[in-house]
Amino acid sequence: MTLPSVEAFERAGLRAWPGIEVEWDGAWVRRAANGYTKRANSLQCFDPADSAEAGTRLAQAVAWFDQCGLPAVVRTTPLESPALTAALDAANWQITDRSHLYAMPLRAHRADPGGHILSLSDPVFIAAQQNLQHYDPARTRKLQALLASMAVPACGVVVAREGTIVATGLMAIADGIVVTGNVVTDPARRRQGLGAAMMQTGLAWAFDNGATIAALNVQADNTAGKALYASLGYTHQYDYSYRIPGEPN
């Protein structure tokens, strides 16, 4: 099976991990979600040809983020306009969080016996995310607000051992692509196959709900995560990163 294009993956990601506030400027999109993750709180370009007045539009985006009470962030993918890249370079914006998109054709998976599919608002799922991510109440509320904005089929996934939740993540299906996010395992119980058990459980749900492609984002320095996803059949598709304002030249 031929995997989708970069644009197809990015547009699916836009729907699967939405902003609460969204504004389009041509093929550039600004998203804000109370500061929960860079992906949902960033400027992104979806067409390399959309290059007009890049410096002015970047400044307008910075002002928009300021009005939202957020730091300015740009998500840089292979779709970014060279003119936007040049404007970022000229203003000395720094590259951070180098990452990859991994994907694979989706096949049937077997859910783990200790795995459970929950709604995104289920208190058990929220508590699992809060506890394993070590979120304070304010950050948990930001997560809940973003989850409430999701308008595609989605679920929370937890895996339990001896009555204790030891791994969690979420799955969201957009345009036939299941996008996985917020994957976390109890640090004291790593290397026990728990991340794989959570992924298998969520992918089984996604396959049963019509997804044909699986995708996820992983930081370039997350060696363990990349090994896990490769073991499940995911392969590297393309790189992306974020850019944040640096000291003026």
Rank of each mutant, 00 (worst) to 15 (best):
V183W: 11
V184K: 07
E162S: 14
S149V: 09
L132I: 13
M150V: 14
G176L: 06
F125P: 03
Q129D: 01
G210V: 01
G176A: 07
Q219H: 07
H236R: 12
R161C: 11
I165F: 11
G202K: 00
L232C: 12
V152G: 03
A188N: 07
G233A: 13
Y238N: 01
G114Y: 09
P137C: 10
A204P: 00
D136S: 13
G210Y: 00
G181P: 08
A172R: 12
R190T: 08
Y135M: 15
W205H: 04
K142N: 14
V157A: 10
D122T: 08
T185E: 13
G195V: 12
G115P: 11
H134G: 03
M171T: 00
T223R: 11
A214I: 06
V124H: 10
A196K: 13
K226A: 09
L143V: 12
G181E: 15
A160F: 04
V157I: 14
A211T: 10
R191L: 11
A154Q: 08
M198P: 04
L170I: 02
M171R: 03
Y229E: 06
T168S: 09
K226R: 15
V157W: 05
V159Q: 06
R190M: 10
V183Y: 13
M198C: 15
N182C: 11
K142R: 15
G193S: 12
G195S: 10
D239T: 06
M199T: 04
S231E: 08
T180P: 00
R139F: 10
I173D: 03
A206G: 03
G193T: 08
I126D: 01
S121D: 15
V218D: 00
G176N: 06
H116S: 12
G210M: 02
G202F: 00
P137Q: 07
N182S: 07
V184G: 07
V218Q: 00
A224M: 01
G193C: 07
V157M: 05
D175E: 06
A230S: 11
T185R: 08
T223G: 07
N209G: 00
R191W: 06
Q237G: 14
L120M: 08
D221I: 14
M171Q: 05
D239Q: 11
V159T: 12
P137H: 08
A167L: 05
I117Q: 02
P187W: 11
L232S: 08
Y234T: 10
V178K: 02
S119A: 14
M199H: 03
I165V: 15
Q144N: 05
M171F: 07
A224Y: 01
I213R: 02
L216A: 00
V166A: 13
I165H: 06
Y240P: 02
I177D: 05
